[in-house]
């Protein structure tokens, strides 16, 4: 107002900050989101140690530290370690690996996961594929035998298999007495089912984090309650797996496994809760989430029943990751007061 400043007394606030609105924020931030997922994973880490002993924990530690080292190496000074995403990627990668995997391989996997899977695309938010799965797919392609050698659950805790500390690039075969088959390969190759309680408790062979169905479900419920992920994706996956495998089971009960086994075995629950829900690599829009989840479910069933591999969760998710941008295109929300694309304006 006038230069005389008729009423700008001493109390008039000085040095006001100008920010464009909104001037409130919800208080939820990205590290908190990541942290919630890590918290939901911790019971699985404990279970991995319980069922598979010290070598399992060493694999987890190597994958996690390896991922964080990779992030630090390529993004020094940018503080990106603080968003917890590298830690989470490492932890998830570790949980998808077999218990007696040579540690150097876990390290290579971590390098591939964060380096190729994430940083090569430009870092968090820009990657097309789930980084942990990129790391796992890399390992699967490079070391197919090591990635399908399963140490049985319930061995003494401190018993370290020779493979764990195997020197890089030298093959060390685990003695056959100390390897076993996963419930899925027993089903695929021997037509032998595993009872549900073992699958829920986790005392079966498999990747570190995938065997205890119960803990995964609890973790999923925690994340849903925290609204830390899009529940539509796991729901869509589980529903489509149940529907499709149910249809096969009804058509040939002696030829195909029952839907409950399909749902609770292998990496399905783990993949549905912790990997398919990676927000970066799944579609944004609600309709897209349904399509994405249903696609994963269908692919899992097809690969498991008709593919050469007993398990298909990894490839199913990676394939749908690749389809995600396309799904995104066709699943844009309908703007308020407008008709869906291609339809006449319904509102007017």
């Amino acid at each position: 107002m006038s230069a005389k400043g008729h009423d700008s007394g001493d109390a008039a606030p000085k040095g006001l900050v100008l920010r464009s609105g909104p001037h409130l924020a919800s208080g939820m931030d990205t590290p908190t989101l990541m942290r919630d997922v890590i918290i939901a994973l911790l019971p699985l880490v404990v279970a991995a140690g319980y069922h598979f002993g010290a070598p399992a924990l060493l694999v987890l530690l190597t994958a996690t530290v390896g991922s964080m080292l990779t992030e630090w190496l390529f993004r020094r000074g940018e503080g990106t370690l603080l968003d917890f995403s590298a830690l989470l990627t490492g932890l998830i990668l570790g949980l998808t690996l077999p218990p007696a995997l040579p540690l150097w391989m876990a390290l290579v996997g971590a390098l591939a996961a964060v380096g190729l899977g994430k940083l090569a695309f430009g870092g968090l938010g820009f990657n097309l594929f789930n980084p942990a799965l990129v790391g796992r797919a890399f390992l699967q392609a490079a070391f197919p035998t090591a990635l399908t050698t399963w140490r049985p659950a319930g061995r003494p805790f401190f018993e370290i298999p020779a493979s764990t500390f195997a020197p890089p690039l030298l093959s060390v075969r685990a003695p056959d007495a100390l390897t076993t088959a996963t419930p899925l390969s027993r089903m695929k190759f021997d037509h032998k089912a595993t009872d549900l309680s073992s699958l829920m408790w986790g005392s079966v062979a498999g990747s570190l984090g995938e065997t205890s169905g119960l803990l995964i479900i609890i973790g999923g419920l925690f994340l849903a309650a925290r609204r830390a992920f899009d529940v539509r994706i796991p729901i869509a996956i589980l529903l489509s797996v149940a529907a499709l495998s149910g249809a096969f089971y009804l058509a040939g009960p002696d030829k195909y496994p029952d839907p409950l086994f399909m749902l609770s075995s292998g990496g399905l629950l783990f993949g549905a809760v912790y990997m398919a829900t990676d927000p970066v690599t799944s579609p944004l829009a609600p309709r897209g989430a349904w399509i994405f989840g249903a696609g994963i479910g269908v692919l899992v069933v097809l690969i498991r029943l008709f593919g050469g591999l007993p398990e298909g969760v990894m490839y199913a998710i990676l394939l749908m990751n690749a389809a995600s941008p396309l799904i995104e295109r066709v699943s844009q929300p309908r703007p308020f007061g407008r008709a869906r694309e291609g339809k006449k304006d319904a509102a007017s």
Binding site: R19, A25, D29, G123, G125, F126, P279, L284, P286, F336
Partner: peptide
């Protein structure tokens, strides 16, 4: 006034669920 740290978009979809105009 505490300045919020800016992270890259992780495509969490919260803004879609917030938008009353049903935009992306």
């Amino acid at each position: 006034l505490t300045k919020r740290h800016e992270y890259t978009c992780v495509r969490c979809g919260r803004c879609l669920d917030a938008c009353a105009n049903m935009l992306n």
